[in-house]
């Protein structure tokens, strides 16, 4: 994997996590609340997700799926950190243990 492929992978992950934060913000809007807030969050989510999608499609044409896909496993760590920071979500011991196991699994998969 070259430096530019790796950069594409990291950019894909960042866009993907940002999209999730936007989506959660959108779905947390109270029902009957201002529609503009929901739409703004939702469309921002779609936009960064779309960027992640096309970066990913480019990567898929160059590598095997079972090799490439597990890189996405960096995302649980990025995501729980982002959720704690931007959504003030609580972390439990189980969640940390699970996320660390998942990420360790991902490191092994991508090293093989």
């Amino acid at each position: 994997m070259t430096a530019i492929s790796l950069l594409c992978v990291i950019l894909t992950e960042l866009c993907s996590v940002a999209g999730q934060i936007f989506f959660k913000h959108a779905m947390s809007q109270p029902e009957g609340g201002p529609r503009a807030k929901f739409l703004g969050m939702f469309l921002s989510g779609i936009a960064v997700k779309a960027l992640a999608f096309f970066l990913w499609l480019g990567l898929l044409s160059k590598f095997e799926l079972s090799y490439l896909y597990p890189f996405e496993g960096i995302s649980p760590v990025l995501l729980v950190l982002a959720a704690a920071l931007f959504l003030r979500e609580k972390m439990t011991l189980n969640l940390w243990a699970g996320v660390i196991l998942i990420s360790a699994g991902v490191v092994l998969v991508s090293a093989s």
Binding site: S66, L95, I100, L101, I102, A104, V106, L108, V109
Partner: peptide
Amino acid sequence: LLGEVIPLKRWIGIALVIAGVAVI
């Protein structure tokens, strides 16, 4: 389904991911 080959290390990684999800 795609006939891709999974080496041993990758199998162990897959098992760890499943264990992590199970813990949660």
